[in-house]
Design a protein around this nucleic acid. Sequence first.
DNA 1: AATGAATGAGGGTTCATTCAT
DNA 2: AATGAATGAACCCTCATTCAT
Lengths: 198, 198, 198, 198
Amino acid sequence: MQYKKDELKNTILQNAENEFFEKGFQNASLRQIAKLSNTTIGNLYHYFESKEALFEALVGQEYQGFLFFINNHGNIEAPNQAWETRDIGIWRRLLREFIQKVSPVFTKRFYLLVSRSQGTRYETVRTAFISFMEEHFLEHLRETKTHCAEEMGKIISEQLLASLLTIIRDYSDETKKSELIAETLLFTLIGAMGILED
Amino acid sequence: MQYKKDELKNTILQNAENEFFEKGFQNASLRQIAKLSNTTIGNLYHYFESKEALFEALVGQEYQGFLFFINNHGNIEAPNQAWETRDIGIWRRLLREFIQKVSPVFTKRFYLLVSRSQGTRYETVRTAFISFMEEHFLEHLRETKTHCAEEMGKIISEQLLASLLTIIRDYSDETKKSELIAETLLFTLIGAMGILED
Amino acid sequence: MQYKKDELKNTILQNAENEFFEKGFQNASLRQIAKLSNTTIGNLYHYFESKEALFEALVGQEYQGFLFFINNHGNIEAPNQAWETRDIGIWRRLLREFIQKVSPVFTKRFYLLVSRSQGTRYETVRTAFISFMEEHFLEHLRETKTHCAEEMGKIISEQLLASLLTIIRDYSDETKKSELIAETLLFTLIGAMGILED
Amino acid sequence: MQYKKDELKNTILQNAENEFFEKGFQNASLRQIAKLSNTTIGNLYHYFESKEALFEALVGQEYQGFLFFINNHGNIEAPNQAWETRDIGIWRRLLREFIQKVSPVFTKRFYLLVSRSQGTRYETVRTAFISFMEEHFLEHLRETKTHCAEEMGKIISEQLLASLLTIIRDYSDETKKSELIAETLLFTLIGAMGILED
DNA sequence: AATGAATGAGGGTTCATTCAT
DNA sequence: AATGAATGAACCCTCATTCAT
């Protein structure tokens, strides 16, 4: 019985993932999720106590991962050493190594957490993530006296997040995903260095 | 009465703009818009014949501008000549000139048109805009044998759009807006050139 | 000014006639009538104090005619003499003469009065008309010992009314209309005589 | 719970039948149906997914019967042989036998299907039924050179339909219903034969 | 005579959630 | 563990009618 129960629970989670992915939290329909899962709405409430709880079941772990990432990025951020060189080949290699470590964070459910959570208690995650990136970029941008550094920090962050979400959305192959994320980061770093004031 | 009418109409439009901006077309509530405008929902229908018509009143002109931009970009796209130089200063100047011409298109309502129009007849605009940019980038990216050119075209487009929307959202000063858009474009061009395969 | 006023009033009446004819009283829309009449709904209320008053303006006279017809049918009902003969040619001639006298009653507005008045104070007219006819038929049917005389009286009345309304609806030419009404009456009389018990 | 469910479902259907009967599809109010059924409108939607679906639940079977009748009338139409005789007694007997076969089609819900379905996908049934009858009458009417045969075909059809609907509306006893339908048909046939040109 | 802004009630419909079974 | 009946609030929208101008 336990087996069957878990099976249905996973089915519900899977269908919920798709529904939230397509319509966002607020526009997703529990009825639709129940129907796709071949169960009733009443029974769905037996597994998850509310719409938000269902969403939470999907992204809770991702949220913990996100928090960990935010709080411990110092430990994983290796490639700073590359900052010295101007050889793109080296950068690319270093970035790939780095990304392969953090890439597992960037799942479809992470996408939900950041991008489809309006109406839930996670709706601030997106802003938090942007702020986090902004801070990091600002250090470098200010250092290098970038044009409009203050403003560009936020913009570049939004930009990077958009890329990240696009990649997550469109590519499920882990290797490809990592490659593209690395490439995008590289792209951003080059851009960021390029707009230095001479 | 004419005076008062216009006043309320504008109030409605303003509140609708905010409501659509915050919740998107589908989740926006006419009741809420009416309440904020200190009128009844029945009266709101006196001014706009449907929810979509209200949205259209906000973004219709922007849509025309968008179409014009898509169809006539050939005539305005001057800075291609700059492609030869590597002097960032020159690029920046050329880009700013170019952006100042197209910048009026990028209003807050343009933001609604592209980003909050799901459920309306404009919901394809975003994709169209992305495709438009993608095509343009692909030419250059393929030429320069960029790593993962095909995929990066789409990603860079999404990224650029995200920047654009962020800038529109956060800055209402026309000069600042133009400056930042130009800077972002510059950023993107440098990035695009920089990730060449050696 | 008086001239213009009457002109618009007639336009409204005409459009109302069409609207009531197509949709019936309850489903007719004053907005639609106003729009078709190239005026505003406020102005429409200047001419007619309510939806029902507008309907009344259309069928009031017809209603008076109907009442007169009901109360004075003794004076006009000539062709009873024909009841003696079995020569259809004679009947047809007599019926046509008779119908030509009463035919002007059966206008399009009479159709509205009988058939599109649900929701107004005239909604009983239809039943009254049926009862009126029923009484008349019953006399003859009982006399001639028709099968199920009691029940057939009502049924034949409904039937005759249906024919009448169909003819009014489909034929605007006065001569044709009279001809068909006469033919239908003839048809009914023959039927009524034919189903005698042997 | 199954028992109670069916009970309410039937209550709803019954109240809906009355409401549709009185006001027609478009003017019927789901709120009213819900109130009469001592439930909420939300719960009504638990049983029927839309207003039209509720109507369909009432008349769907009747519609199938109607289609069958239209398509298979050739097989059941026995009494053509009687066309030779002028003995009304024989006709009456043959007609009753015929009607008893088709009479189950003519239920109260058939009345809804034909007469109260404007606004649903069944709104063409009435016209189809009229056309069907018209074709049948026209054959005979033309043959016998009836006065105004073309026009009378339609009129007689409308007339017959009116009778039919009246009988359905007023009589629920199956035997009485059959008897009256047969009598009406007889009435019509005699009328049709009687108005021959000499 | 004419305008059209405003109201309030009602239309069909969808929803997350609760709860007795 | 599972059902599905029931609720109540909200959704967009239409309407006849009133009234200040």
